[in-house]
Simulated scan of single mutants.
Amino acid sequence: MPAGPVPDRQLPGPEHPRGAGARYPFPADVRGGGLGHYAHDELWQEIAFLAYHLHWDLDRLLDLEHGDRIRLLQEVGGLNERAWQGVQGG
């Protein structure tokens, strides 16, 4: 398909996917595609968290697929939670 403007029928509409019950990573006031500030800031928070705990370089973290990054965040968060409970004696 040749490069060019997006046809009007393919442009984002006024409805936000969250209204339809979709799981969507952007706040309700961010419309259309692309990265909003929320997603950009959240990505950097996730990268910083993983870099701190895993000691991986930026390129390796940025190369992660979204699902892999989310899984690592969950796993590292779980390890931190269990470690914190051990410190508190619980």
Rank of each mutant, 00 (worst) to 15 (best):
R23V: 08
G89Q: 07
R23K: 10
V30K: 02
G19H: 11
V30N: 05
P14Y: 09
P25Q: 04
P17W: 13
R9D: 06
R23H: 06
Q85K: 12
H40Y: 11
G33I: 05
Q10F: 15
E42S: 05
H40W: 12
G13E: 05
E15M: 05
G89M: 03
R18V: 10
G13T: 11
E81H: 14
G4S: 00
G34W: 13
D57P: 06
G21N: 07
V30L: 01
G89Y: 08
R82V: 07
P2W: 04
V87F: 15
L72F: 14
G34N: 08
L62D: 02
A51S: 14
G4Y: 05
L58K: 10
D59Y: 08
L72V: 01
G21R: 07
V76F: 06
V76Q: 03
R60M: 14
R71T: 08
M1V: 00
F26D: 08
R9A: 03
A51R: 15
R9W: 08
Q74C: 01
N80D: 09
L11C: 03
L50K: 07
G77R: 14
G21H: 10
L62V: 12
H16F: 07
A48H: 15
D29L: 00
G36C: 07
H37T: 06
H40C: 00
A83R: 15
A28M: 10
A39T: 09
G78W: 14
D57Q: 11
H40G: 00
R69W: 06
D29C: 05
H40E: 10
A48Q: 09
V6H: 01
A51F: 14
A48R: 15
A20M: 12
Y38N: 04
H53C: 11
R31V: 01
R18C: 04
